[in-house]
Amino acid sequence: MNIFRLTGDLSHLAAIIILLLKIWKTRSCAGISGKSQILFALVFTTRYLDLFSSFISLYNTVMKVIYIMCAYATVYLIYGKFKATYDGNHDTFRVEFLLIPVVLLAVLINHAFAPMEILWTFSIYLESVAILPQLFMISKTGEAETITTHYLFFLGLYRTLYLFNWIWRFYFEGFFDLIAVVAGLVQTILYCDFFYLYITKVLKGKKLSLPA
């Protein structure tokens, strides 16, 4: 464990909690892409199947359980409890355009052609593009609630910190996973435009509205 991975995980946890609290407190999922949240639930489900087969550390197990529970709770709030506030007209990204290439890539490019390894690879590739429906929805509505931008900031920050974690691990531990690094780079690059708007607008107290 290193400081980049720990702060990255905590940033990820913060994002997940911020979103869950936003929906719960405002009793509304306006502006939130349910499709992205379903994809995140799928990412955690396919990546954390090893919860039952291998124990790495208490931290690892506890965080995985929290992520999975929060992901499904968020999906439930969006499509169940507060579905009346779900803005389906703007959450129209065709997720099959993400799932099909990700499945193909996971089958073709992986570390080992074994079920758990392919599921892990699928989850890594899917996570790198899972935010697209959310970013697409914001571009369609032309704006985002400030709390939603904080959610996106911490979500984008987490994988950015993981990039530094991988540099650290390569340098100090000789650990290197090309699949995770390339997918993590793609994931972080997708946030660049948002990061720019967040820093130049939201942090200056303005509302995030598009076109910039």
Binding site: D9, D50, S57, N60, K64, A112, F113, A114, F175, A180
Partner: peptide, 10 residues
């Protein structure tokens, strides 16, 4: 493919 890299990351 390469041997399985340890999956200790979240």
């Amino acid at each position: 493919g390469d041997d399985d890299v340890p999956k200790d990351e979240l």
